[in-house]
Amino acid sequence: MKKHYVIFAGLVLMGIFYPRMFPGYLSVAITLLLYAGWATSWDILGGWAGQVSLGHASFVGLGAYFVAVGTSHHEIAPWWAVLMALFAASLVAYLWGRLTFKLKGPYFTLSTIAIAEIFRLVAINEGWLTGGATGVFIMTLPEPFGLDLFSRQVNYYLALAFAAITVLVVMLISRSKFGYQLRAVREDEDSAMASGINPTTVKLKAFMLSGALTALGGGIYAIFLSFIEPHIIFYLLLSVQIALTAIIGGRGTIWGPCIGALLVVGSGEIFRTTFAEANMLIYGLLIMVVVIFMPRGIVGEPARYLIRRVYAKRAQS
């Protein structure tokens, strides 16, 4: 476990110096860090608790809308808005989980799509609350300690902090009692129950944590774009992208979602500039190839291989 903390510290250090080394590549980096954070948050529910959600755009949207509407319609400072969003997201996740956790496997997944779609329609139609279909601009933000929150550097460090927090949370979980409970529920709810774990409570906690962290990233996303539209922010494809990032990297692993973000966002950016119109085609093919040849994800697959080898050696000796 210690080595994970060493890797973590090294990566954060690298992250801190990145803007000095590549000042012209901040937007891509911000997008990458946001996806890394979202995928890691998603993985708490999707990987560690084993509940695949395709509705996480709702939490991105909650965070983004609290910040955008809060700052531009109600003059609430973004940090208070984010705090409110975290609370709201946990509450939504709680109710959402209460409603749907009795559903298993694909039923749960499909129900998350339905709920997220309802969120999208509410965001579009309730203009008094959200600004409606035409979206919300963030024109001015306060300047805490003289920091311009709109500047790419500040956006970058916010996104870095967000990604770091999510990874740190997952590292703490992975060795905690809660982490073992999550895995027990994922592997077999009935046996988990037999050993005194309440699966619904455990899953609810995971969902609330996952939702709140995703909303945190959503708040930063709103500032990064400084203009949000409900169609884009509550879009099914965003949910799918987040889940995809985590699964491609490797579900239920500490670094999988980050590696996934590197692959998904990085390749997307490279393909965008090199393959012109064919870029999405190549991207789709890449997803298929990775999943077919590495079904447990880029991190998950070698990890499984290593574990197997260790067991094989033990069995030999």
Binding site: V28, T31, F224, F227, R272, N279
Partner: peptide, 14 residues
Amino acid sequence: DDRSEATSALAAIE
């Protein structure tokens, strides 16, 4: 190309 999405457009600006 902005791939019909905002984040790619922002990267393209840079």
